[in-house]
Amino acid sequence: MSIITRPTTSVGQPHKQRSRRRVEPIFYVFLVPSLILFTLAITIPGIIGIFFSFTNSIGIGDWDFVGLTNYVAIFSDPAILQSYLFTFGFSIVTVIAVNAVAFLLAVGLTSRIRMKSALRTIFVIPMVVSGIIIAYVFNFLFSNSLPSLGAAAGIPWLESSLLANPDLAWVAIVLVTAWQAVPGALLIYIAGLVAVPGDVYEAAEIDGASKFQQLLKITLPLVSGYVVINIILGFKGFLNAYDIIVGLTNGGPGTSTRSIAMTVIAGFNGGDYAYQMANATIFFVVAIVISLVQLSLTRGRNAL
């Protein structure tokens, strides 16, 4: 978009500009409602939240300024540091898992196979189910169905629930999150694969490239823009992980699977509003840094 508009405004023939200006108000009208809503619902509460992160408020009643105390405390709080570690580790693993699975599925579902549309429909179903419901269903599977299956089949490691294992509970969360997130990535990959012209494959075939070489040397480079989109969207979403974790482990066992979002919200319920506002402010800064890095990485990628 910006690439198209910039030259016209900078070249700027006077009469053309005037005619543009006459159209402009309507664009403002389009923008104003969202701008007002964004200001009221996001900017102002955000600023209020940052303000309160310098107090000892619990959200109601009396409060005092405490300066940077909350921030100092956060950097020595192992629970919060652990929630950052967990959230980033979980997000990276999940992004890789989701994209690998979704890409392979998309390749399969765009090739010439039987019942293609029926299969596509089936694979997209997890996307339309709400996260908390998926989490509770899997919770039941992990803590009841799998252990009793393990007991019946005599497989000892299956007998205890994955969710009750502090070292492995995160695997369950990655599995369930990926199960829900794959369809979204899958749709984007299908769109990308369909857009690849068929003649490049024909040419490759004539040159004697195997199917695997085609996938690696032709398909993957041609959809690389979609890979970037999926990674950015996915990573952003997984950093905010909340509902699936609440339904599966509720941060446990112990504190091994508490995400940043859960820690912040636990602060609201636990009368720790100001402290968790400081945490949210730090998370906000981290998120901005990540978006800047992502923007600079993706800039100039016309494949997008």
């Binding site: 629970a79 941060g251 066992p253 112990g254 504190t255 091994s256 636990a266 636990g270 009368g271």
Partner: peptide
Amino acid sequence: VPRTIPIMNYTQAIVFGAPPAST
């Protein structure tokens, strides 16, 4: 214990095998 300290999670960690002294 104030709610902001996740003591329920800690007690769960202990019965699941975390060393009580460090918890």
